[in-house]
């Protein structure tokens, strides 16, 4: 492996950018392909398919064997609202292996006492997201019930292409939200990506159960992201 490529790959991984280490097996030569890099020909088709699927594997192109090691960032959750549901969600997210941060400008809610050991920002989402932006590998959960706080991050999540966008609120509340977002110029297709009412329909009736429903819905969204893997030699690893 080329040491410069190892550094480039690690820089991408640690910066939460998807990257592929492409190795030509016969010569052992490798290169790093980033998501927006243009790669010509069949190799380009295979690398784009691999970015979408996130799957590493061996491929044969024009008689040459290539190994694609696909590095896709770990999924994260950004929760807007330091409320009771979020306290429960923080525990569940840790168990499911998702990094979670909580953003709420209301300092009465966003206290270290209520969120011990949790990544917490007592700031307006506008300010916090300017510092640490959302990305396609982040789930956005808006649970303050307050459009002044929830609307901006929801719109931002739709624009950024967050893999999951969920908003708390009844159907009536959501209908008003849809009207506001249409007025903001968002398309119906974008708005339809918002999961509202939030969470899988498991008849959850308290904050803890709602947190479970939200976590389940996030996992479902992550594991069923649209995938168009290229044809070829990608073999699914099976559980031992």
């Amino acid at each position: 492996m080329d040491p410069a490529n190892l550094k480039k790959l690690n820089a991408a991984r640690n910066g939460r950018r998807a990257a592929i280490l492409l190795t030509e097996m016969e010569s052992g030569r490798d290169r790093v392909v980033l998501e927006r890099d243009a790669v010509a020909g069949s190799l380009g088709e295979i690398t784009s398919a691999a970015f979408r699927s996130g799957k590493s594997g061996m491929h044969e192109i024009d008689g040459k064997e290539y190994f694609l090691n696909v590095h896709v960032p770990a999924p994260r959750i950004a929760a807007i609202g330091a409320v009771h549901i979020t306290q429960a969600l923080a525990g569940i997210a840790a168990i499911a292996g998702y990094d979670l941060r909580v953003i709420d400008p209301r300092t009465a809610f966003a206290t270290p006492e209520r969120f011990a050991g949790v990544d917490l920002a007592a700031e307006w989402p506008q300010d916090e997201l300017a510092k640490r932006p959302l990305d396609a590998f982040t789930a956005l959960v808006a649970v303050t019930h307050d459009p002044k706080i929830d609307d901006f991050p929801l719109i931002e999540a739709l624009k950024t292409g967050c893999f999951y966008v969920g908003a708390l609120g009844s159907r009536k509340t959501h209908a008003k939200r849809v009207d506001r977002f249409k007025a903001e110029g968002l398309s119906e297709a974008d708005i339809a990506r918002i999961h509202a009412p939030i969470g899988l329909d498991i008849a959850a009736s308290n904050p803890m159960e709602i947190a479970v429903a939200i976590m389940g819905e996030i996992i479902q969204a992550y594991r069923t992201r649209p995938v168009h893997a290229g044809e070829g030699a990608v073999r699914e690893p099976q559980e031992a």
């Binding site: 292996g97 050991g117 917490l120």
Partner: peptide, 22 residues
């Protein structure tokens, strides 16, 4: 700010390992 959950990386994602950083 802490990132207490970083240790709980799902075993199904080899990309989450720190081997290449090491």
């Amino acid at each position: 700010m802490t990132s207490a959950s970083q240790a709980t990386t799902p075993a199904t994602s080899p990309a989450l390992g720190q081997e290449l950083d090491i």
